[in-house]
Simulated scan of single mutants.
Amino acid sequence: MTVLSDTSIKKAVLSGELSILPFHDDALQPASYDMRLYWKILISPMRHENGRTVDLRKEPNHTFFVEPGRFVGILTEEKISLPLSMVGRFGLRSEFTRHGLVAFGGIQIDPGFKGRLAISLFHAGPELIPLKLGRKMFTVEFNQLADQASKGYDGPFQNQSTFHKMQKDFILNAHTTSLAEINTLPSEIASIQHRLTMHETFYHPKREFPSISELAKAQGVSPINDITELSGLLSEEDDIDTFLETVQKWRRGNNNDE
């Protein structure tokens, strides 16, 4: 198996053996070809957001900034078509991997494959990473087989022009916690503790007045064990009816110091 040089890649494209559409001369590397970012990307949910599809054509400066902790689905702008005598290998350009983007998925492009290339990414770095429409993100290496393959690729990604349902469902439902969010956890915990304290104070306020038992203890009054202990409170001259009437007036707030 022989790795194609830039000269061999261009020769294969010009002869029609290999198809890369659109083809850009400035994307040729010494032994690979750089592919550009398509306008449609998938963004995983985070916090209270839902996963969504982003159209880079509608973003400011055609750029979306990926937060740490997110999954992203991306496609190549180019569509390729490999002959049965050729196999490809692709991945992210090193400038992205050095900033924390990790690629998931098969790296081999089988003989006979046709369509856009799709890849799932995870941002494991600490800072925002800009994804700009048309930016060179992928690098593809083409290898000439010693013998032509007996059959071409016929899997679910053949002739794909957009995201496969399997990849779309995964990205749009891959809820994650941002690495940046972890730094906010102490303040969020403190906020929760404060709210719990306020809740406890509101529903269980501190008593401002002592209870009857506390008052009795403070005044040295003990419980009565025998009702006859109350017999000396009224003299024989006192009228019990007058006493009860006076108590009723006190309770009604009509005490006139009679």
Score class of each variant (00 low, 15 high):
V3T: 08
V3K: 09
L4Q: 05
T7R: 11
T7C: 02
S8T: 04
I9G: 07
I9D: 05
K10T: 09
A12N: 05
A12H: 08
L14Y: 00
G16F: 02
S19I: 11
S19A: 09
L21G: 02
P22F: 07
D26F: 13
D26M: 09
A31H: 13
S32W: 09
Y33V: 10
M35W: 03
I41C: 09
P45I: 08
R47P: 00
R47I: 14
N50I: 06
G51R: 08
G51S: 10
R52K: 15
V54T: 07
D55L: 08
L56F: 12
L56A: 10
E59Y: 03
P60V: 08
P60Q: 09
N61M: 10
H62A: 15
T63Q: 04
T63R: 03
F65T: 06
V66H: 01
E67M: 07
E77I: 08
E78G: 11
K79F: 01
I80S: 01
L84E: 01
S85G: 13
G88C: 14
F90M: 07
G91F: 04
R93K: 15
S94V: 11
S94E: 14
T97M: 12
L101T: 01
V102G: 00
A103I: 06
F104G: 01
G105V: 10
G105L: 10
G106D: 04
Q108T: 15
F113G: 00
F113W: 01
G115A: 06
A118K: 01
A118S: 14
I119K: 05
F122R: 03
G125W: 03
L128Q: 09
I129F: 09
I129D: 01
L133C: 03
R135T: 11
M137F: 13
M137D: 00
T139P: 00
N143T: 09
Q144M: 14
Q144V: 11
D147N: 10
D147P: 00
Q148N: 08
D154L: 05
F157I: 01
N159S: 07
S161R: 05
H164C: 06
H164T: 13
Q167L: 13
K168A: 14
S178L: 09
E181K: 09
T184P: 00
L185M: 14
L185Y: 14
S187V: 14
S187E: 15
I189S: 13
A190H: 14
R195D: 12
T197V: 10
F202Q: 11
K206R: 13
E208H: 02
E208F: 01
F209W: 09
S211P: 00
A216P: 00
A216I: 03
A218W: 02
S222D: 12
I224F: 13
N225C: 05
D226T: 07
S231K: 14
S231F: 13
G232W: 04
S235P: 00
D238V: 05
D238F: 03
D239R: 03
D239M: 01
D241G: 07
Q248H: 04
K249F: 10
K249A: 15
W250Y: 06
N254S: 04
N256A: 12
D257F: 06
